[in-house]
Write a protein that binds this DNA or RNA. Structure first.
Lengths: 155, 155
DNA sequence: CGTCCAAATGCAACTGAGTTGCATATAATT
DNA sequence: AATTATATGCAACTCAGTTGCATTTGGACG
């Protein structure tokens, strides 16, 4: 099943055998309508803006529950903050890569980019999932080159 | 220059134009001798065990300084905690991948594994660095299968 | 319908890695 | 040895995430 956008939050929750509460439906709605991964805070903001404020602990625990069920992904961490997104469209062994801009700090989802699975793993290691994080300059910031962190000034 | 292991901490610091203090030399020594990326806490522990305890803020600021100079990498985050390792052996566009075990939680450096650079980036994006994180079961834990996080129970 | 109970929610208080301000100590230059 | 910019230690702060507990509620069952 990969047409979540066309399913109601209620049906999605039901199909994951999760209790259907107003709070959870709202959170799911926000995630369904977002083009990018969101932090707990961003979710809280958007809920408040829709006159449907929710306690931050409830958001925390709902996401925790969605995570366990596999409905949602902890997509990436930035400055020690997790970003969440629906797990739809994620392949079995890898989600789409994310791209972070050094200049503006924004992170983009790049569903169209493919990275081959790692090869040459030592015997014994079982690869279940591969996560790829790209860094560089986004189209908006490409014009005026940013400070790219030094890699090795030793000559 | 990529033979850091054969250089003294003092010479390495000098070549990066960093002030050479006993604290920094000790931290560098720890990193030089470690096979894997270390957290600030792990570095503190090892310093203490060598009768060379250092205030955690000093460790924090030294690593910050090493980072800026490009001597060290923030290799990966686990449970919101950063791990640091020397930047030697890191290629220009990607460091070696890291492998985290679902079962025991340990993280391994896999310098021998190669992952081709992402292709198909939308026009305008400039890729500077690619970070790859692998997840699965390590050789030790492979025997008794762990709880692999569900991906999509929806049928 | 109404009853009931496991699960969800809100509040307050806690956790802990990281971070900052400031006074003191020290590296390294003169 | 004197000087000064830099590093260090201490204490106090930040803040996303986390936990405990009392209250509310979804939804199953009568």
């Amino acid at each position: 099943m990969s047409h979540w956008r066309e399913m109601s939050p209620r049906r999605i929750l039901q199909s994951f055998a999760l209790r259907c509460t107003p709070g959870r439906k709202s959170i799911l709605q926000i995630l369904l309508q977002s083009e990018q991964a969101l932090t707990q805070d961003q979710i809280a903001d958007r809920l408040a803006r829709r006159r449907r404020p929710l306690n931050k602990v409830t958001i925390y625990r709902s996401l925790e529950c969605f995570l366990r069920a596999g409905l949602v992904h902890q997509a990436y961490q930035q400055d020690r903050i997790w970003h969440y997104e629906l797990a739809h469209r994620c392949g079995k062994t890898q989600c789409h890569p994310h791209f972070s801009c050094y200049e503006c700090g924004r992170t983009f989802c790049l569903p169209e980019v493919s990275v081959p699975l790692a090869t040459g793993l030592r015997a014994g290691f079982v690869l279940v999932r591969q996560k790829v994080r790209l860094e560089g300059l986004c189209p908006d910031c490409q014009q005026q080159p940013a400070d790219v962190p030094a890699e090795s000034p030793l000559s």
